[in-house]
Structures are given as structure tokens and as C-alpha cells.
């Protein structure tokens, strides 16, 4: 076992997902199996192989610097869980800006 419930809890925090104790106990061994079998990739991923990030070799796709109409504010905010003064309202933030 390389992935403990504690590891899963730490990852869940990083991913901002609350997990119940039951979920943690169920997930940890499942994830462990998945990750162990995925470790297979390192068998052939030798230093001389270049990684592929994009399936097709396109480069330099640009748009011209032209202004396009924005959304009406009402549309932008229509789906907001809370809004105030044409802004999205969010609960108080504890952490500082990056």
C-alpha cells in the first residue's frame, strides 16, 4: 500500500473536495490499485522519448486583437449563486491572494 487514507485526505484538500471518513476508507485502496497499475508507464518512458502534450502538431494559433461584444451583465450574473451590486458575491475568503 503506497497511498494511505492520510495521503488521500491531503490530496482531497488540495483538490478542495470534502470527503467523509467512509469515502476515505473506500477510496484509498481503490486509488492505490489504480495508481499501482498506472505505474506501468514508467517501464517504457525512457529518457530518450519526448513527451506528447498535444495530439496534433499545430502551432501559432492566434486571434487578432479585436474587441468583441461582452455578455450583458445580467447574463454574466444570471447563474451566480449570489450577486450584489453587479458583482459575484462569495463567502469571506481566509487565504490571501497569490
Amino acid at each position: 500500500m503506497t497511498l494511505t487514507p492520510d495521503d488521500v485526505a491531503r490530496l482531497a484538500r488540495l483538490a478542495r473536495i470534502d470527503l467523509t471518513v467512509e469515502e476515505l476508507t473506500k477510496l484509498a485502496p481503490q486509488l492505490d490499485v489504480i495508481i499501482a497499475s498506472n505505474r506501468l508507464v514508467s517501464e517504457v518512458a525512457t529518457a530518450d522519448v519526448t513527451p506528447t502534450s498535444h495530439p496534433l502538431p499545430l502551432t501559432n494559433v492566434f486571434r487578432s486583437d479585436e474587441v468583441v461584444a461582452s455578455l450583458p451583465v445580467a447574463d454574466a450574473l444570471a447563474m451566480a449563486p449570489a450577486a450584489e451590486e453587479d458583482r459575484f458575491r462569495v463567502p469571506r475568503i481566509l487565504e490571501e491572494e497569490q
Binding site: 486583437d65 474587441v67 461584444a69 461582452s70 455578455l71 451583465v73 454574466a76 450574473l77
Partner: peptide, 27 residues
């Protein structure tokens, strides 16, 4: 000071009314 944003066509002018320069992409 480009006219439009990095990844969408919304204007970049400073001081516009809140959320008037937004679109599905930059939201």
C-alpha cells in the same frame, strides 16, 4: 494595453462598470 483580453475578445479598458467586460471565456 491590447484592445482585447489575452484569450477572448472582451475589452480591457480600465475603470469600466463591474462585469461589463466579461464573456463565457473569461468567466
Amino acid at each position: 494595453n491590447t484592445a482585447s483580453k489575452m484569450f477572448c475578445g472582451c475589452a480591457t479598458a480600465f475603470g469600466a462598470a463591474p462585469n461589463t467586460q466579461t464573456c463565457p471565456v473569461c468567466l
